[in-house]
């Protein structure tokens, strides 16, 4: 029998270890697994690498991981947003290594990792500082930059609804990075608003359960 349901957030994040590379879904405040991040804070692991679009705002759970010095490296497209005070403070103190990746390249590197692709040539960032030190190639007159896949040990994602098989569907713009991150981690944990007893309608499944290791209900919609 396949049953990916776990009873609580703490159980869901228990496999996470010190030094882990962790993808965190979401964009702005939408689609962020705040329950799992709060459980990760309680879990106490350190020296984490966080792969996410943003680097937390105010005192949200991602910002608190930075405040508590649990994060040593951030791979991110837009770390500086209004209210990203803890990221900016730790960055200025030199406590965080930052890799800035263009947003589409971030998504595609994650997709490559989840799809068994060994890298790709993208026109994004060609001729800029973010292409320095990378292989480039001109193909049919257009300049491209070679980008490598970006895998992770864990993905913490948020969805609207799941069934026991780990199939997921999303709500509005809370989808964002969540489906692609689910594919790219060795162990994907999904926090969902509704954990359904019945299987999801197959036509409505956005993330097939094969990409998901565990699902946990967290009813709050932030």
């Amino acid at each position: 029998m396949i049953d990916k349901r776990v009873s609580d957030l703490a159980t869901a994040v228990a496999p996470i270890f010190d030094g882990a590379v962790i993808m965190v879904g979401g964009f702005g405040t939408s689609g962020i697994p705040f329950g799992l991040l709060a459980a990760l804070l309680d879990h106490g692991t350190r020296d984490l690498t966080i792969i996410a679009n943003n680097a937390g705002t105010g005192e949200d759970a991602l910002a608190l991981l930075l405040r508590e010095n649990r994060v040593s490296r951030v791979i991110c497209s837009y770390p500086r947003s209004p209210g990203s005070v803890w990221f900016e403070k730790r960055y200025e103190e030199g406590l965080i290594e930052l890799e800035v990746v263009p947003q589409g390249t971030l998504a595609e590197r994650i997709r490559a990792a989840g799809s068994g692709i060994g890298g790709f040539f993208t026109p994004t960032a060609y001729g800029t500082l973010l292409a320095e030190g990378k292989e480039t190639r001109v193909i049919d007159g257009v300049g491209y930059v070679f980008e490598k896949p970006l895998p992770a040990d864990f993905a913490l994602i948020r969805a609207e609804q799941a069934d026991r098989w780990g199939n997921l569907r999303y709500h509005a713009t809370a989808r964002n990075f969540n489906p692609v991150m689910a594919m790219a981690a060795k162990h994907t944990i999904a926090e969902v608003r509704i954990l359904a007893d019945e299987p999801l309608e197959p036509e409505s499944v956005i993330t097939p359960g094969i990409f998901v290791n565990s699902v946990v209900e967290f009813g709050v919609r932030p």
Binding site: S77, Y78, P79, R80, S81, F87, E88, Y91, E92, L98, V100, V101, P102, Q103, G104, T105, T122, P123, T124, A125, Y126, T128, L129, L130
Partner: peptide, 21 residues
Amino acid sequence: WATLEQNFPPAVGGAMDLVAG
């Protein structure tokens, strides 16, 4: 996307992808 100020963390977002395509 970035200035020349050292302590100001750069933030590129989707700008480079937009101008590429």
